[in-house]
Design a protein around this nucleic acid. Sequence first.
DNA 1: CGCGTTTATGACATCGTTATCAGAAAGTGG
DNA 2: CCACTTTCTGATAACGATGTCATAAACGCG
Lengths: 331, 331
Amino acid sequence: MKNVADLAGVGVKTVSRVINQERYVSADTIARVMRAAEQLQYQPDVQAGNLRRADRRTDTLGLLVGSVANPFSAAVHRAVEDAAIQRHVAVFASSLDDDPERERASVEAFLRRRVDGLILTTIQRSQAYLGPQLEQGMPVVFVDRKPNGLIADTVLTDNLEGAARGTRHLLAAGHRRIAFLGDSEEIYTAKERKRGYLDALRLEGVAPDPRLVIENLGEEAQAELAVNELLALDDPPTAIFSAQNLITIGAIIALRAQGASERVALVGFDDVPMASLLSPAVTVVAQDPSAIGAIAARRIFERLDGESEPARDFIVPTRLIKRGSGEIRPA
Amino acid sequence: MKNVADLAGVGVKTVSRVINQERYVSADTIARVMRAAEQLQYQPDVQAGNLRRADRRTDTLGLLVGSVANPFSAAVHRAVEDAAIQRHVAVFASSLDDDPERERASVEAFLRRRVDGLILTTIQRSQAYLGPQLEQGMPVVFVDRKPNGLIADTVLTDNLEGAARGTRHLLAAGHRRIAFLGDSEEIYTAKERKRGYLDALRLEGVAPDPRLVIENLGEEAQAELAVNELLALDDPPTAIFSAQNLITIGAIIALRAQGASERVALVGFDDVPMASLLSPAVTVVAQDPSAIGAIAARRIFERLDGESEPARDFIVPTRLIKRGSGEIRPA
DNA sequence: CGCGTTTATGACATCGTTATCAGAAAGTGG
DNA sequence: CCACTTTCTGATAACGATGTCATAAACGCG
C-alpha cells in the first residue's frame, strides 16, 4: 500500500480510502490511485486490514462437515458457498470423518484464523467448548445434528416425520412386517429416524417386532449381512425401511443377490445417486441438503447483521420420492 | 496475548515464545504461561502473526474446482484437505461453475487473503493474469486442465491414453462402428479424449465415420437426444464411447428407453456413481481424482519447501473397470 | 575465582492496514 | 468579506503478533 501511495503521490490513508470506497476523495485522486494500484498489481491484505478494522470481520466462514467428499455434505457446502460469495466471504471447509479429535482440531484451526462464523456438523459428546465463542457473539449454526451442552441455532432435517412418512408409505401399501435398518444408536439423526419408524407403526396399531429392528449398521457390508439374516427368518419382512444412505445401498445389493428386489419393498431415508436408473428404481425420503446449507448460511449472516433473537431450530422438511421399490405390495 | 502475558506476569515476547515452542524458556515459565492461556481461552491470531513472521506463511491454500458439489471435484478437494491438515494448513475451496468471471473473482479473493499456494481448475481463455504471482514464487498447480499463456505445474488425467484404451476395449470386443459422444470442443480434456478415440480407431485401421462423432454435449438431455439420433441411423453404431460423466448417464437413459442397453455396448470416460448396480453394469475408464488431489497438494508443499525445478506435468493414469456394458459383442 | 558461553527474559520496532484527529482548501450564506 | 460547513488530505497511533537486540542470570571449565 505504501508503494501505491508513493507512486500516486498521496498518503497511505488516501489509498486506503480509495480501496474502501470511502467518501471525501476527489475524482482526480481516485483515478491516480487506481492507476497506481493497477500498475503495481496491488491486492490489499484483508487480514492486515481486519487487524485494525472496527468490526474485526475477516469475511471468512468455517464449515465443518462429515466429509467434503460425501454428496450430502458437498451439497451443503455448495449452498453455503453460494450464499457466502455474494457477500465476498470465503469459506474454509474441513472434513470431520466422525473423528472427535479432528472436530476439536478443525474448530481450533478456524478460531485461530478468526472466522466470522461457524457452521458445524459435530460428533463430539459435547460442544460446550464453544461456549466462550457463543458468549462473545460469534455466530455458530449447527447442521444436521443437535449440539450437546450448548444452546445454539440448529438446522435439522425433519428426521422424525420423514421416517414416519416413509414407514406410513409402506404401511399404506399393505405391509405389516416392515424391517428397520439403522445407523449407530448414538447418532442423533439415527435415533430420531428410529423413533419416526416406531411412531408410524404404533399409530397404525402394528406391534414392532424386535427381530426386524437392526441398528448399528455403519457401512454397506453390514447392511448386506443384516438383510440376508432378515430374509432367512421364518416369517421374513415384506418391506424394509432403511434409515440411511449407505445402508440403503447395502440393502439393494443384498435384496438383489437374494433375488428379492422385486418382491420385498424398500424405502430409504436420504436419496441415493442414480436411484431412478436402478431396477427397481429406489423410493426414498429425500433430504434437502441444499436448503439446509442455505438456511444455515442465511442464519449466520443474519446474526452478523445484528439479529439477536434467541437460538432456535430450523426444521427442513423431507420429500417422498416414489420411484418403484417402495410401491411393491406384499404378496 | 497481552492479557495472557499480564496474567502470567511475563512479557508478551515470552508468551510468543511459549506458543511457538521456541527454545530458551524455563519450564516454570512455560507452565505459568500455559496455565494463563488456558484460563483465558487464548487462541493466537495466525493472521496477525503472519504479518510480521519472516516467511510470511498464512498456512492457507486456495482450491478452485468446477463445483464442490461435483463428485470429481469433491474427491480432489478431500485429497488436498488430507494432505493439508497434516501441515496445519487450512483450505479455501471455491466453485467455478464454468464462469470465467467467477474464476477471476475467486482467485482475487484467494490472493487478498494471502494464501500460500493455489490449486486451480481453470476455465478462462488465459491464466496470464497469474504471471506476477508465479514470478514472486507463489506455488500454483493446475489440475485437470492445462493453463494457457503460462507455464506451471499441472496434474492431468491421462485423457489421451484413457480414451484410447476405452476405445481399444470396444474394438477388441469386435466393434467397428463405435460412436463418440463428447463435451464442448473448447475444453482441453474433451479434445484429448477425442484424439484418443480417433488414434485408437486409426491404429486398428478403422476409418472414423463423422456421423458417429457427436460433440458439444453439455448435459444429460443433449446426450440422450444424440443417442436417439445415432440409433435411428441406417447403420447405427454397435458401441458407444462416451467421453464424460453426465454424457454417459444420458446415454444410459437413452439406450434403456430404446431397449438397446443389452445390445449396444457402452464404455464411459470417468466413473459413474452406482455403476456396478445398474444393469447392465457400466464399464468405464475411471479417473483417479484422489490421486490428482494428492499429487497437486504434494507439489504445492514441495514448492513451499523450496523445490525449484522447472514446472512439469504430472500424468495420472486411468483404470479400465469392466462391469458388463463394455463387454457386449456386436450382433 | 574469573571469564566465556549458554539460557532466559523483555523493550521496542515492525508487518500492512484502518481509526482518529488535525488541518487545509473550497464552498455557502448573510 | 467573514464565519461556518463541507470536502479533501495526511501524520500518527493502533491492531496482535514476531524479529531484533540488549541485558542479566546461571553454568562450565581451567
